[in-house]
Design a protein around this nucleic acid. Structure first.
Lengths: 95, 95
DNA sequence: TTTACTCATTGAAATATTTGAATCTTTTCC
DNA sequence: GGAAAAGATTCAAATATTTCAATGAGTAAA
């Protein structure tokens, strides 16, 4: 498992520190092994499209979620590796 | 292990999303089984006392660290339980 | 009980984040 | 090609966070 540096951990923490972004992650989780599409979020989150887009950007820039183009659409999946690396960082904080 | 709710996870993420607060945690970690005192932070962090106090408040309010009075001083230790609960929350995000 | 020490609080400035209307780009379908 | 659909970008307003000088509150030591 990759050793995560402090700056990366800070960015991931920031990405997780917003209710809309946690909601997005829970919507992805709901999809289980399927993908989540933007339209799923427009249906379930009461924010304008540019706002949701902004939050998705935070999550993709930190690679917590991974995007994939599919025609006009973009679909997302959870990136377990980054979450595991972040968990490794947190384990390292403990005494 | 306690099931952490989303709002708590959001607050913990926010508490972790700042370089000064991560630095404080690493200073506590350095102390191993000893306690960290405020003066340790004044020596190692280049910020005014109220700023450090503000950051310590974020960390104690979320119970990531635990304070204890000792005369005029306050000493801190890491709260492994909260970190483990947060790790549990992160595990739950994975697909 | 006065003085010094340690940490907390207040209030204000600087900076960063969140939000959405308007607009742009890319892709699909006719 | 032209129109429609799905996201991305720009920009500005609203809100939140970070920082520190000044000051307050509690404790210890003289």
């Amino acid at each position: 498992m990759a050793q995560m540096d402090t700056k990366t951990a800070e960015k991931i923490s920031k990405a997780l520190s917003d209710p809309t972004r946690l909601k997005i992650l829970s919507e992805i989780k709901k999809k289980k092994n399927d993908w989540l599409y933007c339209v799923d979020l427009y249906d379930n989150i009461n924010l304008a499209q540019p706002s949701i887009c902004h939050h998705l950007k935070q999550l993709t820039e930190t690679a917590i979620i991974l995007p994939e183009k599919e025609g006009r659409n973009i679909k997302y999946t959870m990136n377990n590796e980054v979450i595991d690396d972040f968990i490794g960082f947190l384990q390292g904080l403990k005494k």
